[in-house]
């Protein structure tokens, strides 16, 4: 009986062999039935992508183009199928966005193309595909990743949407700043709002949840930055649009409230080392609207100051805020029509878009910068929990 000598890592070549007839089972167990909250929680980030790629490597090694095509097509269709089925679940969409990107990076990193090999180890360069150029499939995967990203944005928008107006505008994070005596006992902390309303803390907690799930899935840092920038844009646009449509939101104290809330969001960015994500800049129109609520609005100098300060607001938005502005008490005067005319005259040369509201549905174009992995394929082991016993390491 041959000695059962355990093969050392160095003997494996980082490929996975499977029978053609087992491909449906591979797709079912690794994609369709895999639960991100279930066994996937304990996987190394991107493991499904590495497994699929190691299967592609073996089919390439066999020089079997049909097997390569079939696996790639089934993989793409499998991911689309699971996202059709569970596409409103943030964890599922985030999980397959990060695995689709990792699969795309593997196809590049091991393509044999010079530009993608710069960070490869010698061993990794030995693991490059030998027979097929999969550049066209990489393009299809990139198209799929864009679709998944847009789906992720819709999911997080649906979760955030109900929180924004209440958390950013209505709830008084700074108690009493509006001059209204807090009813009954002063609320202990800003996160305890009336039943069912959201506070700024609710929004921050949700941002934390999104961020930790994406980190847990091993999502590329550059992609996390783009998701966060998109989230902040949505928060800023929805908040500003509501401010522009509600007289009760245009007061000095609301300006103070908004500036405080924005500072808390900036604090969150700093905590997560995301100050360079472009997210803060998407809040600029809201920040300027809040400042406009707080600055003096009487003299020529005031008009000059407002025109130079509000470069991220359109003329229509500036005029609207000034028209809606409501003095917080009888000692304060309303904004005079003549002052608003003065502003309009000063801004008449701007080539502003006429629309009043921001496009809260706008999705920034997404990019997937190449992000090679240092993980050595020959060391990857398949956990039994994936029920992939019909696949063997080569």
């Amino acid at each position: 009986r041959p000695l059962n000598i355990p093969r050392k890592e160095k003997d494996f070549q980082g490929m996975l062999e499977y029978k053609k007839e087992d491909e449906p089972k591979l797709i079912k167990n690794l994609i369709l039935d895999l639960k991100p909250r279930g066994v996937a929680v304990n996987l190394i980030p991107g493991l499904p992508a590495y497994i699929l790629f190691m299967c592609v490597r073996h089919a390439d090694y066999l020089n079997d183009d049909q097997k390569v095509r079939s696996l790639l097509t089934s993989t793409i269709n499998g991911i689309k199928k699971i996202l059709k089925k569970r596409g409103d679940d943030f964890e599922t969409v985030s999980f397959w966005l990060s695995n689709t990107c990792r699969f795309l990076h593997c196809l590049k990193q091991y393509s044999g193309e010079e530009g993608f090999m710069k960070h490869n180890s010698t061993r990794q360069n030995e693991h490059c595909l030998t027979n097929f150029d999969l550049a066209e499939y990489r393009q299809v995967l990139s198209d799929l990743a864009i679709q998944i990203y847009q789906q992720l944005v819709r999911v997080l928008e649906n979760i955030l949407q109900p929180m924004i107006v209440s958390g950013m505008l209505e709830h008084e994070t700074i108690q009493g700043v509006s001059g209204v005596k807090p009813t009954g006992l002063r609320k202990r902390t800003s996160s305890i709002a009336d039943e069912g309303t959201y506070t700024l803390d609710s929004i921050v907690r949700q941002l934390n949840t999104f961020h930790s799930i994406m980190c847990q899935h091993g999502t590329d840092p550059e992609l996390i930055k783009q998701v966060v920038k998109q989230m902040f844009y949505i928060i800023g646009a929805v908040t500003l649009n509501n401010l522009l449509l509600r007289k009760d939101m245009c007061s000095w104290s609301k300006g103070m409230q908004i500036r405080y809330n924005v500072s808390q969001l900036e604090e969150w960015l700093r905590d997560k080392n995301l100050m360079n994500s472009g997210a803060k800049e998407t809040l600029e129109p809201l920040i300027q609207a809040a400042q406009l609520l707080q600055v003096k609005k009487k003299t020529d100098e005031d008009a000059e100051a407002i025109c130079s300060m509000c470069n991220a607001l359109t003329t229509a938005q500036i005029v609207k805020v000034l028209n809606l502005y409501t003095p917080v008490n009888e000692f304060e005067e309303r904004v005079l029509v003549s002052f608003i005319r003065n502003i309009q005259m000063r801004l008449r040369d701007r080539k502003d878009a006429p629309q009043l509201l921001m496009d809260a549905k706008h999705i920034f174009p997404v990019t997937f910068p190449f992000n090679p992995s240092s993980l050595a394929l020959e060391t990857i082991q398949i956990p039994g929990s994936l029920s992939l016993g019909f696949i063997s390491r080569v």
């Binding site: 790639l72 097509t73 689309k80 044999g112 499939y137 299809v140």
Partner: peptide
Amino acid sequence: QRARPRVLLKAPTLAEMEEMNLSEDDDSP
């Protein structure tokens, strides 16, 4: 220097893959 160039595998678009999938689903009992 590589022995021979890799063969470019022509890929269907996402939409074409979807059609393939639908036809397979139709075939499946």
